[in-house]
Design a protein around this nucleic acid. Structure first.
Lengths: 182, 182
DNA sequence: GAAATATGTCAACATGGCTGACATAAATAT
DNA sequence: ATATTTATGTCAGCCATGTTGACATATTTC
């Protein structure tokens, strides 16, 4: 970042906000770039930990959703991640072989391999979620009182209209799936 | 998404919000997952267009920042993208060879290769930014009046504290760099 | 003139996407 | 009861994009 002069950001941001509703001639540069930078940093904390386990982001995603969704079907995971079964197979196999995830035969349908985290898997998943939670909590803490709710609404609205309901159901369902206590 | 029952999301979200400030025992699941889904969809529109040009996300990022930052140094781009010069070199070469980006010798320092988009490059960059802007504008439109500002503040706060100022300066500077008119 | 800097390039490797083809077991339909 | 569909797994290979390490060249700075 070389010869960069400071200038007031807020007035430009305000102008951008005014733009946005009326005519969309000008791209919403600030949010486009902030999404890039925010997401980059958001995934960087887990990445560092995962590297010590010789795991990557792909493992993280699988571990995360299996942890959140005990008993998830392989097919569900494929749909959530929107990747092919071959791509999933590669990382899932490693997670199973190394004892982070187990697969159990479905009771109703014995073709299914329902996915569960082991205690070891849960520990790692929770550690990674903890890192991301720290970042989010720090961010929310720097903003007003209903920061969580407004961030949530923005992110939900950014999701494809088709998938939006499914995602919200997924989140709601997972909240009940974990936490049988309390 | 198979056998998923609906349940009220809002009460869980509210509970999550209450958690967050006081004790951070429980991960902020909803925002963790929403960031994943929102970002996934956010980059998917450009991806589709880029595929027609045989370009990928890496090209998009380079094109985006060069478009936003006419005259950017290669070193600056490396710092922004946080990738190695070899990775950058590969995609940059393609963009230059195919006439989307040009490199000009620095006037003060003739070792530098300052980066500029061609008209062709600008057209593509703006088209991609337009897609992302549509999504953002749609999202902001579904929320309250100061949605833009609160989204901006959330995303800024999510960035690493060290890089935060640089990012904001980068955005502010770019806003002035493009738009010499008006 | 020597050293540092900005950039480029070659080679090799890792990760995690992808397609296509094929295999197996279990459920479902005819 | 057999045929088909479904859920999952697996082999083989390709592609995009990240990495490291080594080295080359031009230019600026000390």
């Amino acid at each position: 970042m070389a010869d960069i002069n400071i200038s007031s950001l807020s007035d430009r941001a305000a102008a951008g906000q005014a733009d946005q509703g009326s005519y969309s001639a000008e791209p919403i540069w600030d949010l486009i770039e902030l999404l890039f930078f925010a997401y980059r940093d958001f995934v960087s904390d887990p990445d560092d930990v995962l590297a010590k386990f010789s795991f990557g982001r792909a493992h993280h995603r699988v571990l995360h959703f299996v942890n959140r969704h005990p008993g998830m079907k392989v097919a569900d995971l494929l749909e959530v991640l929107k990747i092919t079964k071959q791509s999933l197979g590669r990382v899932l196999k490693q997670l199973v072989d190394q004892g982070y995830v187990v697969q159990k035969e479905g009771e109703n349908d014995r073709r299914q391999r329902l996915l569960y985290v082991t205690p070891k898997g849960e520990a790692l998943a929770m550690r990674l979620a903890g890192l991301q939670t720290e970042r989010i909590a720090r961010a929310l803490g720097q903003i007003g009182p209903n920061a969580h709710e407004s961030a949530r609404r923005f992110l939900v609205a950014m999701i494809d209209a088709d998938g939006r309901d499914d995602v919200q159901k997924l989140i709601a369902r997972a909240d009940r799936a974990r936490r049988p206590r309390s």
